[in-house]
Design a protein around this nucleic acid. Structure first.
Length: 457
RNA sequence: GGCGCCUUGGCGGAGUGGUUACGCAGCGGCCUGCAAAGCCGUCUACGCCGGUUCGACUCCGGCAGGCGCCUCCA
């Protein structure tokens, strides 16, 4: 049985497109990952979360997705950061990669299928550059190699720019090596203060930013693959240049659908390292928990901007607590999923929301509506169904309330003491114990089947 | 200046040519020994001005405000 039809917005065509794999149910997804020069922030985590969940969703539908998230581990900013830290640039990049893996790993969403590093793709990069030079789309100049933008007729299609009208900017020293100000670097000659370089036909140097993605994406997914993704800020020049490189060399573009996520915004600025307006991912996870961070990042449609604030995170944390409370009062039952029409309805609506341009906030609304219905009147199998839906959004941990609320012996003893006080109608004593438990981080709930301790954040 | 996007109720955030999105917060009630959780009810919406239409928040035009990119920011 063929998997359901998936529709996704494609920046290149400017329209919603149906996902049409090259071959059967295999779906290649390449999402541009971080430049590993500093700890990542919430904004960097958005594409990571969105596209790893897209892979999870496609897999659940019966597709066979392969997700590639690259690591840009050679870059001006890495040189600068390493120099400032007094370390070697390669070691600095490795340290940042380790941190990135630890922090994104803490989100509990698994890893991409491949996480290639630019520095491990140098041979493929050089080969691709040589192809471009051979076909007249690129030229060497004083140790640099540039892509000749005007040799590629479709340049500007992705970002809807006309090269003839593009602002050519101020002339700068390095531009003297270019034949045309629009040209961009494929290879950069080694500079004296750079401690990492590779040998190449054009001398010592290192790759430009865009060429690594053309080379690594092709190596792992081929050309004309299904989905290329990244932040909207990468549409130009990064993705535009990537298309130019691959299409000029291979005669076909890198990907069929170009997905771009919107920016995380604070009060009035996008969340960007370059303006120092950061909220570190690691700190967010530590303070609010992985489920809060994940739920926040999917609380808005991936294409739109998303407002970041402490209040927003706290609102999401409260919403997650509502989900946990459902599982506290409705333990999952053993056995097969029930066939209640309300559960079937929820599954259908949930899937439909994601099938139409991955509308995660709409899918979350389905979850809340099912919870409300099941709180009103028990629905056999609701908990199991909800866990399944939550899992598709990376939030199955919200169902693990027994582990979260596992009480220490002291708290359990206090709870028992409160119960005996209540049995003796000594409410003053019972309430005093409740206050004491509250001081220890425990909230007491007198449920139908007895009292329960609930862990407060 | 060029290209693109956005403007929904206290906050966050979906969606649709005519019907409650959803969540958080607030208020009233039910439940509770009292709470909590839950349930019920409830308040503040679709930037402004025109147009199309039987009817627009939802389509078209203009205006205002905001955002992204314009060579290396997800």
């Amino acid at each position: 049985m063929a998997p359901p039809t998936i529709r996704l917005y494609d920046t290149l065509s400017g329209a919603i497109q149906t996902l049409q794999p090259r071959q059967g149910v295999r779906v290649g997804i390449y999402a541009c990952g971080p430049t590993t020069y500093a700890p990542i922030h919430i904004g960097n985590a958005r594409p990571y979360v969105v596209f790893i969940l897209l892979r999870r969703y496609l897999a659940a539908l019966g597709y066979e997705p392969t997700l590639v998230v690259n690591l840009t581990d050679i870059n001006d900013k890495i040189y600068a950061a390493a120099s400032a830290a007094g370390t070697e640039s390669g070691a600095h990049a490795e340290a940042m990669i380790a941190l990135y893996r630890a922090e994104t790993g803490a989100l509990g969403l698994g890893r991409p299928d491949h996480e290639p590093k630019a520095t491990e793709a140098i041979a493929a990069i050089i080969a691709l550059i040589e192809e471009l030079i051979g076909s007249g789309h690129a030229y060497a100049s004083q140790g640099d190699v540039y892509f000749a933008v005007r040799s590629f007729a479709d340049y500007g299609k992705l970002s809807n720019r006309d090269p003839a009208e593009m602002d050519q900017g101020e002339e700068r020293g390095s531009d003297e090596k270019k034949r045309d100000p629009l040209d961009f670097a494929l290879w950069k000659a080694h500079k004296p203060d750079e401690d990492t370089w590779w040998a190449s036909p054009w001398g010592r140097g290192r790759p430009g930013w865009h060429i690594e993605c053309s080379a690594m994406a092709e190596g792992l997914l081929g050309t004309d693959f299904e989905i290329h993704a990244g932040g909207i800020d990468l549409a130009f020049p990064h993705h535009e240049n990537e298309i130019a490189q691959t299409a000029a060399a291979r005669g076909v573009g890198p990907a069929r659908i170009w997905m771009h996520n919107g920016m995380i915004e604070t009060v009035d600025e996008k969340m960007s390292k370059s303006i120092g307006n950061v909220f570190a991912l690691g700190e967010a996870i530590e303070r609010y928990g992985a489920e809060t961070v994940v739920a926040f990042l999917i609380s808005g449609h991936y294409r739109g901007p998303l407002a970041f604030s402490v209040a927003a995170l706290e609102s999401i944390a409260a919403a997650n607590e509502r989900i946990r409370d459902f599982f506290r009062t409705h333990p999952e039952q053993d056995g097969a999923a029930r066939a209640d029409p309300r559960l079937e309805r929820a599954r259908v609506d949930f899937e439909a929301a994601l099938a139409e341009d991955f509308n995660t906030p709409k899918a979350l609304a389905v979850i809340y509506e099912l919870i409300a219905a099941a709180n009103r009147e028990p629905i056999a199998g609701a908990a199991a169904t909800l866990r399944g839906l939550l899992d598709l959004l990376g939030l199955a941990g919200l169902a693990d309330v027994d582990e979260r609320d596992a009480a220490d012996p002291a708290a359990a003893a206090l709870l028992a003491e409160r119960e005996s006080a209540r049995a003796g109608r000594n409410f003053a004593r019972a309430d005093a114990i409740r206050d004491e438990l509250a001081g220890l981080g425990w909230e007491v709930r007198d449920l139908a089947d007895g009292p329960r301790l609930v862990r407060r954040a």
